[in-house]
Design a protein around this nucleic acid. Sequence first.
DNA 1: TCCTATTTGACTTTATTTGACTTTCTTGTA
DNA 2: TACAAGAAAGTCAAATAAAGTCAAATAGGA
Lengths: 145, 145
Amino acid sequence: MKKSLADKIEQYLKVLIDRSEGKQIEIQRAELAETFSCVPSQVTYVISTRFQEKFGYRTESRRGGKGFVRITRFAVTSDIATINDADKLFHFINELVEKKILELNEGSMLKHIVASASSTLNDEERKNLYNSVARALNEYLNLNH
Amino acid sequence: MKKSLADKIEQYLKVLIDRSEGKQIEIQRAELAETFSCVPSQVTYVISTRFQEKFGYRTESRRGGKGFVRITRFAVTSDIATINDADKLFHFINELVEKKILELNEGSMLKHIVASASSTLNDEERKNLYNSVARALNEYLNLNH
DNA sequence: TCCTATTTGACTTTATTTGACTTTCTTGTA
DNA sequence: TACAAGAAAGTCAAATAAAGTCAAATAGGA
C-alpha cells in the first residue's frame, strides 16, 4: 500500500508505543511535525483519526509551555464488544496483520471465512457472527501471545 | 473473439495477482486507468464484474489521498460440502496439521475460534460456520501448497 | 433488430493536507 | 499577586486527491 503521510505518522507512533513501557507515549506535537516536515495539525489529524477509543487508544494532552500529547493503548481486547460489522472486524484483523500478530495469509483466511459465512445470514445473525469471531480471535491471542 | 478493454484489464490484474506474494495486490484506480488510457470508472467496472466474491475474489478500498483498491484471490473448490458439524471440521483440521499443511498453532487458532464463536450461534448459523471454515481452509490450502 | 455488455463522463463521497486563527498553559517581571 | 508574553496544542474550513455511483451512449452478438 502506498503510504500517505498520515499512514507513516501512524506507523511511527505505533512502533513507539510498542517499544514503550506501559504502552504509553508522550510526544510534542510540534516536534513530531518537524520530524515529518509537516504542519502540526497534521499530527492532530492522525491522532484523531487513528488513535480513537474504538481502536483501543486513549489520548490526553496539555497546551502551553511543556505541553504534550499522551497516547495510551489499552489492551487490544477491551473494545471487542463494539465489533459488530464487517468493517470493524476487518479493521481489527488488518491491525493484527500489521502488528505481525497474524500472517497476511491468516488474515486473508479469516476475512474470507467471515465474508463467506455471513453471506447467508440476516442482519442480526451477521452482527452476532462478527462479534463472536472478534471475541474468539481475541481470546485465542490472549492465550497465545 | 476480440478482446474488449475490460477483458484486457481483467487479464492484466490476474497476472499481477498470480505473480504477487499472498495472492493479493493493491492498485490505484486512476493510475491503472492511465495505463490503459481509459476513464477510472472503467476500472471500477472491471473490478465489480470480474472480481466478485463468487469468482473467488475479495476487494477492499480507500478513497482520498493515496487511496487504493486491494484485490485478494482465494481459490474456489467444491467437495467439502459435507462438513457441517464440529467433529468433522476438527477432524479435517487435525489432518491438515498432521500433513503439515497447517501449522500447529494455526490449527489451534481455528479450532479455538470455531469452538468459541459457535457457542453463541444458533444451529443454522453453526452449520454455516463449520462449512465456511472448511471451505476457507480448503481455499487457503489451494493457494499456498 | 433486440438484448446485454461495455464505455464514458458528470457528479458524489471520503480521506488527506495545509494554514489561519483560537485557546490554554507556563513563566518571568513589576 | 497580577499580568503580559510566549509556548504549545486545538479548531475549522479550504484545497486537493482518490475512489464510488449512476445513467446515458455505444458496440457486438444471437
